[in-house]
Simulated assay, not measured.
Amino acid sequence: MHSELQSPHPDYRQWLADIKGRYRQVQLKAAMVVNTAVLEFYWELRADIVARQSITSWGQGFLTQLSADLMNEFPGVSGFSKRNAEQMRRWVTFWSQLPPIAKQPASQWMDILWWSHLAKTPNACSPCFGRCNDTKRTR
Rank of each mutant, 00 (worst) to 15 (best):
R46M: 12
E86L: 08
A102G: 12
G59M: 04
V38E: 15
T93L: 07
F62N: 03
G21A: 02
V77S: 15
Y12W: 06
N133R: 03
E44F: 01
N72W: 03
Q108H: 12
Q87M: 02
T93Q: 12
L16Y: 06
E44A: 02
L98Q: 06
R89A: 09
M1I: 08
T121P: 03
T138P: 00
D48G: 07
E86D: 12
P99K: 00
N72R: 04
I55G: 13
V77N: 14
L5C: 09
T56K: 00
F94Y: 15
F94C: 14
R52K: 14
T121I: 14
H117F: 12
A106G: 14
E44Q: 03
E73A: 13
T36A: 14
S96R: 08
G21R: 00
Q53T: 13
R46G: 15
S96P: 08
G21L: 03
E4A: 11
W43G: 07
D48Q: 05
W114L: 09
M1E: 14
G59R: 00
R46T: 13
P127R: 08
G61Y: 02
T56F: 03
G61Q: 10
D134F: 04
Q53I: 02
L5Y: 04
W43N: 11
P100Y: 06
R13S: 13
E4Y: 08
S57G: 13
Q108T: 14
M32V: 14
S7I: 05
R24W: 01
F62V: 01
A106N: 12
Q104M: 11
R139P: 10
A30I: 06
A31T: 08
V38D: 09
R131E: 15
L45P: 01
S81Q: 04
